[in-house]
Design a protein around this nucleic acid. Structure first.
Length: 273
DNA sequence: TTCCGGGAAC
DNA sequence: GTTCCCGGAA
């Protein structure tokens, strides 16, 4: 699909007009250090802004640098992560901090391809970090951007592929002010999602979440929560505390261990380091 | 009580 | 293609 230059310019104006009146204030828009941007973008993966804000503030206060984060016990990081969900991200974040300290002298690399080699950093997050921390005109997509473009350029289309949207992002990007442009575009997209039925449902990549109740995700969260409270627990303790069948618990303990979220010592489990 | 939303790794 | 969380809304 192609669009006229006029249409693209109109869209830019619309987005900037919206932003000048309704820009959202967020703590990670106040401190623009590579570290603080990095933390915020990882927290914002699969997690809504409202839920991230308070966690972000505490996290940055306790761990103000890659160095302090790299040196921290995983237990402390997971404690602050509690409530954000997808705890694997905290493990990957810890590993990334160690790599940045040991391999890059504590200085976050400023190019997208290198960032993507870090655990837990994929193309979207790498792009957003480069745009917001370094104000470089990279092309990236995330849910608010997707919603904005689907609403304005693909009104009655279903199954729109990100590839198509990426080229639109590239030609609408304000290359002189990428950071401000992406802030504006994301604020506009967030508004569109609230005002209309989420346009991202018409994305080819939209997926419907399976039930949480009774899921492994729920059980994993319970296991971690209990281990964070009690230092260490046996499998029998966990069967009672998590109210779960032994075989299901066993499978999840094995997975959590493989992913580095818990460790086993004889018949007791704990948070590593 | 169920539904909903959001990136990366495997 | 499938698996990771959590809490607010419906």
């Amino acid at each position: 699909m192609t669009f006229s230059g006029h249409r693209l310019v109109q869209f830019q104006k619309k987005v900037y007009d919206y932003y000048s009146l309704h820009r959202r204030k967020m703590p990670w828009r106040e401190i623009l250090s590579p570290y603080s941007i990095f933390i915020s973008e990882v927290m914002l993966q699969q997690t809504q802004v409202e839920r991230v804000i308070s966690k972000y503030k505490v996290f940055l206060h306790v761990f103000p640098s890659f160095k302090s984060l790299a040196a921290a016990p995983l237990r402390d990081i997971l404690s602050l992560w509690s409530g954000l969900g997808y705890n694997r991200r905290a493990v990957w974040l810890h590993r990334s901090a160690k790599i940045i300290v040991n391999k890059y002298q504590g200085k976050l690399p400023a190019d997208q391809a290198t960032l993507q080699m870090l655990p837990g950093i994929g193309p979207h997050t790498a792009g957003s970090i480069i745009a917001f921390a370094y104000n470089k005109p990279v092309v990236f997509i995330e849910t608010n951007i997707r919603s904005a473009l689907l609403h304005d350029f693909y009104k009655n289309k279903d199954n729109v592929h990100d590839k198509e949207l990426m080229s639109l992002i590239e030609i609408t990007l304000d290359k002189d002010n990428p950071r401000t442009w992406y802030w504006a575009l994301m604020d506009y997209g967030s508004y569109i999602k609230k005002k209309f039925s989420n346009p991202s449902r018409r994305s080819k990549h939209h997926i419907q979440q399976k039930a949480f109740h009774g899921s492994n995700r729920q059980l994993r969260g319970r296991i971690l929560k209990n281990l964070l409270q009690k230092v260490k627990l046996t499998k029998d303790d966990l069967i009672v505390l998590c109210d779960v069948h032994p075989s299901k618990l066993q499978n999840n303990l094995k997975d959590l261990q493989r992913e580095g979220l818990i460790s086993r010592d004889g018949d007791t489990y704990s948070i590593p380091q």
